[in-house]
Design a protein around this nucleic acid. Structure first.
Length: 547
RNA sequence: GGCCCUGUGGUCAAGCGGUUAAGACGGAGCCCUCUCAAGGCUCAAUCCCGGGUUCGAUUCCCGGCAGGGUCACCA
C-alpha cells in the first residue's frame, strides 16, 4: 500500500509543516542545568479545584526552586465538555491563591515563545505528526462506529478478556487499500489510531519521581491519537506538547499512571525523550466510613470557590496543601512562621506517596494561625474584601467604618496583649463574630444561669456605677461590688468553698452582663467591649436586658 | 475481573536493620481565669497479617489481606 498517498488522503491539509521543523521553531530552552520546566494543563471543563491547586503548587515550587519555568497550557481538546468562562475562572482562582505563571495562556509575558498555549490552536502540529506516523505505517485509520466498539467490548467482557482495541479486535488495523478508500469515498467518519508494537507480556520498569520504581506492562492498545474531528486525544497532545514546550517534569495525578504505557510508546514512536514524571497521590475524603478520591461532581469542598466563599485565608489553604505536598514543610513552618513560603526547599522526591484524607480541622487551625499573625489593618482588608463580595448589605455597611472595625479587631486579635487571640478562623466566621458590635445585627437571647431577680439586680447595679473611664481593674472591682450586693460571692474561691451561701459566683454575675452586652455567654474582655461600644450603647443594652 | 499504586496513632506524618517509634491537627485532663480564645503542663492513641533473611525487623525479601486508581473518539 502506498502509505504516502494514504496519509495525504487521510490528512489532506495543505498547510502542514514538515514535522522536524518544529524542533527549530521550539528550540531547547536555555534554562540552567537541573532547572525544571513544568506546566499546569487544565481542561476548561468547569471550576478549578483543590486537586488542581495542589498540583499547581507542586509545579510552581518545583520550577521556581530550581530556576525553571512554570507555564499554563489549556487542554481544550474536548469540545463537548467545554464550559464557557472556565479559563478565566482558572486564572482568577489561581491568582487568588497566589500562584504565578511565567508564561502561557492569557499570561502577558515576553516568554511566550512556545505557544499557542491552547491545544485547539495547535491542531496543525498534531496533524503533521499524525500524518507522518501514517506514512511510517505506525498509525492507521479506523472506521469503527461507537456501536461496533461497544459490541467488541461486550464480547471481551463475556469472554473475560482485556477490553480494548488491540490484536485481533483491532478490526481496522489490517484493512485493505480497497476497503479504506471506499470507506473514505462513502464519507465515513474515521479516527487515527496508533499501530501499537507493544506486547502486554513485556514489562517496563520506569522511575517515577515520587513513587520510585514502577513496573508496568507494555501498551498493546491501538489508542486513538486523532479523533474524528481531527483533534488529538489527551495522549497524543500531551506527548507532542510536552516535548515541544520542552517540559522536563510532568506532575500529574496518579490516575494517569495507568495510561503511562501509552505515553511511553508514543514518545518512542515519535522519537522524543520522555520527561521526568511525578505522579501525585489524590486527595481523599471519607464517606460512610469508606475512603474515596475527592470528586469534582460530588464534593463542593473540592471547589476553590468554596474556600473563597467561606472566607478561608488563601495563604492558609496554600500552607495546608504544602504540608500535604512535602513532609517537612510543617515543621519548617513552625520554626519559621514569618518566612516566605518560597524560602522552603521544596523537593519533588519528598512528595507523599499515599492519598491523604482532606483534614478540615487542620486547615482551620492553620487558617486561625495565619490570620492571627496579621496586623489589624491587614485583617481588616481581608475581611472587607470578603464582605464586599460575599457579605450582605449590613456587612458591607459595617465595613465602611474602618476605624471602628480596627478597634474591634484589636480586641479579637489580642493585638495589645502579650498573647494574640485566635478567634478568627475565616472571613465569614470572623464577620459574624463582630455582629454584636452593631445594633442592626445584635440579637441577644437573655438566658442566664442565675435567677431573674439577681440578674436584674446585677444589671441595674452595674448600670448605676458604670464609667467608661474606668480601667479594667476598676471595672472588675465595681462588678465584684455589684455582684456582692446582689448576693453573689465576689471571689470564685469563696464561692467554691461555700456554694450554699451565695446565689452564685462573680462569674455568674459577669455572665449576666456579658449576655446583656454581647448576646453571648462567651466573649473577649467585656470591659474593652463596652469601651468600644461606648457608654450610651452599653448602658442601653444593660437597660434592655432588665426584665 | 485484569493491570498498577499505597499500607506507622482518629488524621497528616518523621523514622528506612538495634529509637523510651519524633512532631503537628484532633481528643481527654489540669493550670491560668469574670466567660471564651490564647497560653503552659500532662495524658490516651500507631508500625495490616503471615512466612522468611538476620544475633535483631516498623525498616529488607516473598506471600496474603485491605484501601485506592484505571480499563472512552474525557482529560
Amino acid at each position: 500500500m502506498d502509505l504516502k498517498k494514504l496519509a495525504a488522503a487521510l490528512i489532506p491539509d495543505a498547510d502542514l509543516l514538515e514535522p522536524d521543523s518544529y524542533e527549530q521553531i521550539y528550540p531547547e530552552r536555555n534554562t540552567a542545568k537541573g532547572a525544571y520546566v513544568t506546566r499546569l494543563a487544565p481542561s476548561p471543563t468547569g471550576f478549578i479545584h483543590l486537586g488542581n491547586l495542589y498540583s499547581a503548587l507542586a509545579d510552581e515550587r518545583a520550577a521556581h526552586t530550581t530556576g525553571g519555568i512554570f507555564y499554563l497550557r489549556i487542554e481544550d481538546t474536548d469540545e463537548k465538555r467545554k464550559v464557557e468562562g472556565a479559563v478565566e475562572s482558572v486564572i482568577r482562582s489561581l491568582k487568588y491563591f497566589g500562584i504565578k505563571f511565567d508564561e502561557g495562556a492569557e499570561i502577558d509575558s515576553p516568554l511566550n515563545l512556545y505557544g499557542p498555549y491552547y491545544q485547539r490552536q495547535r491542531a496543525k502540529i498534531y496533524r503533521a505528526f499524525a500524518k507522518r506516523l501514517i506514512e511510517q505505517g505506525r498509525a492507521y485509520p479506523c472506521f469503527c462506529t461507537a456501536e461496533e466498539l461497544d459490541k467488541i467490548r461486550e464480547e471481551q467482557n463475556a469472554e473475560k478478556l482485556t477490553p480494548g482495541y488491540y490484536g485481533k479486535f483491532a478490526k481496522c488495523r489490517n484493512l485493505s487499500e480497497e476497503e479504506i478508500y471506499s470507506a473514505l469515498r462513502a464519507g465515513k467518519p474515521f479516527v487515527i489510531r496508533l499501530k501499537s508494537c507493544g506486547d502486554i507480556k513485556n514489562k517496563i520498569t520506569f522511575r517515577d519521581a515520587i513513587k520510585g520504581e514502577i513496573t508496568v506492562t507494555e501498551n498493546d492498545q491501538d489508542v486513538v491519537i486523532l479523533k474524528s474531528d481531527g483533534i488529538p486525544t489527551y495522549h497524543f497532545a500531551h506527548v507532542i506538547d510536552d516535548h515541544f514546550m520542552r517540559t522536563n517534569l510532568v506532575i500529574r495525578g496518579e490516575e494517569w499512571l495507568s495510561s503511562l504505557p501509552v505515553h511511553l510508546e508514543l514518545f518512542k514512536v515519535l522519537g522524543f525523550k520522555p520527561p521526568v514524571y511525578a505522579h501525585t497521590c489524590s486527595l481523599m475524603k471519607t464517606e460512610n466510613g469508606a475512603k474515596r478520591k475527592l470528586s469534582k461532581r460530588k464534593d463542593p469542598e473540592l471547589s476553590l470557590d468554596y474556600y473563597r466563599k467561606a472566607g478561608y485565608f488563601p495563604k492558609a489553604v496554600v500552607i495546608y496543601l504544602m504540608t500535604l505536598l512535602n513532609s517537612g514543610f510543617e515543621e519548617w513552618r513552625l520554626k519559621n512562621p514569618a518566612a516566605d513560603i518560597s524560602e522552603f526547599k521544596f523537593k519533588v522526591e519528598k512528595m507523599g506517596k499515599s492519598g491523604a484524607l482532606f483534614d478540615l480541622d487542620k486547615l482551620n487551625d492553620i487558617s486561625r494561625n495565619e490570620i492571627s499573625a496579621l496586623s489589624p489593618e491587614e485583617c481588616f482588608g481581608f475581611l472587607k474584601e470578603w464582605a464586599d463580595e460575599f457579605g450582605d448589605a449590613k456587612d458591607r455597611q459595617h465595613f465602611t467604618d474602618k476605624a471602628y472595625i480596627v478597634k474591634i479587631l484589636n480586641l479579637l486579635m489580642g493585638t495589645g496583649g502579650k498573647k494574640r487571640r485566635k478567634d478568627i478562623e475565616r472571613a465569614e466566621q470572623g464577620v459574624r463574630l463582630m455582629d454584636y458590635f452593631f445594633d442592626d445585627t445584635f440579637s441577644p437571647e437573655y438566658s442566664f444561669r442565675c435567677g431573674k431577680e439577681e440578674a436584674n439586680a446585677v444589671l441595674q447595679g452595674f448600670y448605676d456605677v458604670y464609667d467608661p473611664a474606668d480601667d479594667n481593674s476598676v471595672w472588675f472591682e465595681k462588678l465584684k461590688a455589684v455582684a456582692a450586693s446582689a448576693g453573689f460571692a465576689a471571689e470564685n474561691s469563696e464561692y467554691k468553698a461555700h456554694p450554699e451561701a451565695y446565689k452564685g459566683s462573680v462569674s455568674d454575675a459577669a455572665e449576666v452582663l456579658r449576655i446583656a452586652v454581647t448576646g453571648s455567654p462567651n466573649s473577649p474582655d467585656l470591659c474593652t467591649i463596652m469601651g468600644i461600644l461606648g457608654k450610651e450603647r452599653s448602658l442601653a443594652r444593660l437597660k434592655a436586658a432588665i426584665k
